[in-house]
């Protein structure tokens, strides 16, 4: 296992929507959403559907995914369904030292036993608001992180520095 990898996935397509009718609207557009608050599911094509709190959703496509594009073109103004534009910075963190890195950045216990599968947390990472989840990806445990894109340069800088310090690599 590599010591630490930091991969910038900010370029992935995203789509956000919130409001009391948002879940219903997504369902009517063929997007399955997590039942519980602060959880995530994978749709077909490994499209990641995250439920942020109770009534907000963030959807992220894989590189060649089209779900977000389609949802964006389908969006009409409906009462109770409000589109949330996104310009997030997003990272994938993996490696044997990933929890060591996270323990400096975040005060929460993000270990396997503390963070349930399909659980999503909105917390503070490196002093700013961020969304975090853990995934199995090609038999590897990885952590995904999203934050406001205007903090992207800062976050990248912090992650890069710690990763290098701990002997990891940055992509």
């Amino acid at each position: 296992m590599p010591i630490l990898r930091v991969i910038d996935l900010s370029a992935h397509e995203r789509y956000g929507v919130k409001g009391p009718q948002a879940a219903k609207w997504l369902a009517s557009h063929g997007v399955a959403t997590p039942k519980n608050a602060n959880a995530w599911v994978l749709n077909k094509g490994k499209t990641l559907v995250m439920r942020l709190g109770t009534s907000e959703f963030l959807i992220e496509d894989q590189t060649d995914g089209k779900t977000c594009e389609k949802l964006a073109s389908d969006t009409k103004r409906v009462v109770g369904v409000y589109k949330v534009p996104h310009a997030d910075a997003s990272y994938l963190l993996a490696g044997s030292e990933v929890l060591n890195m996270l323990s400096e950045l975040c005060s929460l216990d993000l270990g396997e036993s503390a963070l349930a599968e399909n659980e999503l947390v909105m917390t503070q990472l490196a002093g700013i608001s961020a969304t975090i989840l853990r995934q199995r990806m090609d038999k590897e445990t990885v952590y995904r992180v999203w934050c406001d894109g205007t903090y992207g340069v800062y976050m990248q800088h912090v992650l890069r520095n710690i990763a290098v310090e701990l002997g990891g690599s940055v992509a």
Binding site: A37, N38, G53, T54, S107, L108, V121, M122, T123, Q124
Partner: peptide
């Protein structure tokens, strides 16, 4: 640091509030 429980997001350190 003290903990506080957000009814939606669960128990967190006070610095998040």
């Amino acid at each position: 640091m003290k903990l506080l429980t957000c009814p939606i997001n669960g128990t967190r350190p006070l610095s998040e509030f």
